[in-house]
């Protein structure tokens, strides 16, 4: 028996919004420690890694580990039926081929449930090597989304260059070029507004705008985003989900020919 209850179903909806444009389907691996999802997009350029810890749920029970393969467009349809203040309870029997989502309104005057068919997905798990990153940039997630959106108008790629002085986002296209430089802030009072750079070595890598834009769909989950970079290694874009876990995206850099 698997049962997970989240008072704030809107958080799960936000997670879904953050992954459904990258992945058509994905397996949710449920165990005693929580729910995990790891999946690459169809072109094997990016990877989504979601980790929700069991004690972040308001109720969590998982007697036997189970893998639930789901079509994310179908799952989105289910969550479209939930109210923003609803509580969600996710339930599945051991070895079941369906999962049930129950939504309860705040005052419990409305209770709805949706049963969705599970899929058998051929999932391959990837081993992600531990990396000593050259640069780790922590910045407001809304600022990152804004920069990626702005620069995407001009080119297909964004070069992210990080030095001790700050981080520079650059693009070039047919109509010209665009650059955004962010300096490290000293505003320690407001951590969520700070730009904090932890640099071992300067690094400059090129990434596809299309994917960076899809990652910024996670912006509503967290005030801050962390970008971890190292030469010839995929970029890691991490959003912490308060009290529940984290959502990480990995993106292979573009390689100069």
């Amino acid at each position: 028996m698997f049962e997970a209850r989240l008072v704030n179903s809107a958080t799960f909806k936000k997670i879904l919004d953050a992954i459904k444009d990258l992945l058509d389907q994905a397996s949710f691996d449920c165990s005693e420690s929580g729910i995990q999802l790891q999946a690459m997009d169809n072109s094997h350029v990016s990877l989504v890694s979601l980790n929700l810890k069991s004690d972040g749920f308001d109720k969590y029970r998982c007697d036997r580990s189970l893998t639930m393969g789901m079509n994310l467009a179908s799952l989105s349809k289910v969550f479209r039926c939930s109210g923003s203040d609803d509580t969600v309870t996710i339930k599945a029997q051991d070895d079941a081929d369906t999962v049930t989502f129950m939504f309860e309104s705040k005052k419990q005057e409305k209770i709805s449930d949706y049963e969705m068919k599970l899929m058998n997905l051929d999932q391959e798990h990837l081993g992600i090597p531990e990396t000593e990153f050259s640069c780790i940039i922590k910045m407001p997630s809304a600022e990152f989304a804004r920069i990626v959106r702005d620069l995407s108008q001009f080119g297909e790629s964004i070069v992210i260059s990080c030095t001790k002085e700050g981080v520079k986002f650059s693009t070039q296209g047919d109509i010209g070029t665009g650059n955004v430089k962010l300096a490290q802030t000293n505003n320690f009072d407001k951590e969520e507004e700070s730009v904090i750079i932890d640099m071992q070595e300067p690094v400059s890598l090129t990434f596809a705008c299309q994917y960076l834009n899809l990652f910024t769909k996670a912006t509503p989950l967290s005030n801050q985003v962390t970008l971890s970079m190292c030469d010839n290694v995929p970029l890691v874009v991490e959003y912490q989900i308060p009290d529940l876990g984290h959502l990480c995206y990995y993106l292979a850099p573009k390689i100069e020919e």
Binding site: E124, H125, L126, P129, T206, V233, K254, E257
Partner: peptide
Amino acid sequence: SSTQGRLDSFFKVL
């Protein structure tokens, strides 16, 4: 010009 890398070359399939 640049080409898009794939993750398969960085991560091992378990």
